[in-house]
Amino acid sequence: MALLFLWALSGPCLAAIDYDGLFRQSSDLMAQGDLGGALDLLGKVPPPAAGEEAGAFVSSRMQAARILAAQKEPDKAVAACREVLKLFPDNSEARNFVAALEQQLKPGWHTVLSDTLRFLPSLAKGALMTLLLVLCTMLVSPLGGLLIALGRISTVRPVSGFCWFIIWFFRGTPLLLQLFFIYYGLPSLGITLAPFTAAVIGLGLNYSAYLGEIIRGAIQSIDHGQMEAAKAIGMTYGQAMRRVIVPQTYKRLMPPVGNEFIALIKDTALVSTIAMVELMRAADQLFNTYFNITALALAAVIYLVLTTIFTFIFEKIEYRAGIYEQR
């Protein structure tokens, strides 16, 4: 190494400069990890005299700039680029590199802000689709869950068996698989669904199964005396369920159902796999196009905003549903 250095120092003494050899030497030094040595060598390439070939000079300074940028010395890297630009103001490689370096030198929030403004429209569109999916599923799954719960506690064997099967199947297989089956599998049975329909059916069935078990538990946790009291004033089973038992489950249902719906907001990301462009897919597309992590961070923020809003709403509903328990 010391030998190499000596030899390198002797470089300028040569009358005709062997540029190819010089670049090879600097590459070797870089490969050995001696970036400082490589920089020294590159710095020895003189600016071209009038009429002289400029390729070696430009290459040497740009290579130096890349090494300096990699060493986290953007100021020196910019200086190297400026040497080139002084002689060749139109050199696009140097200009782009300076622009990129200056972006790095700018305060971070500035870039983040401009990226945010750039990405927000498509992310907002995706978020709206996510919200629509969530609302549709929130409409469908409590009804489905109630039916499954009532079916499960029914004394009619085939009904309770069927509802047991639904819960067993949809809780026991991955949601992703269910979505694939509905969107990609059903067409082979002659049923072709639009992505949105398939997504709502998949999410709806899956969440109905989960909510079914939650609702069943809540119904069975209501004191048996309530059913007897309802029957004693002459109510049928259906009237007792509708007027007495089910309304009392609302407060107990809110915490676990709120949990499920928070999970649902995030689970909608899975439908990006069946050709739906929602928040996750929109963020993913931006990330792949610009290779910019800001898009993903923004998606995270939007998910957090959505879950926060829903958490807040559920807390309010829980409070209101239980108002009669307060003394």
């Binding site: 004191d223 009291a229 004693a232 089973y237 009392q248 009669y324």
Partner: peptide, 25 residues
């Protein structure tokens, strides 16, 4: 039939040891 049973219960009042009032009403 459940309807007949409900109709009978509607004519017979019952009061329980633990009241069983409907708490949400």
């Amino acid at each position: 039939h459940p309807r007949a049973i409900s109709a009978l219960r509607a004519e017979i009042g019952m009061v329980f040891q633990h009241f069983h009032l409907f708490p949400h009403m």
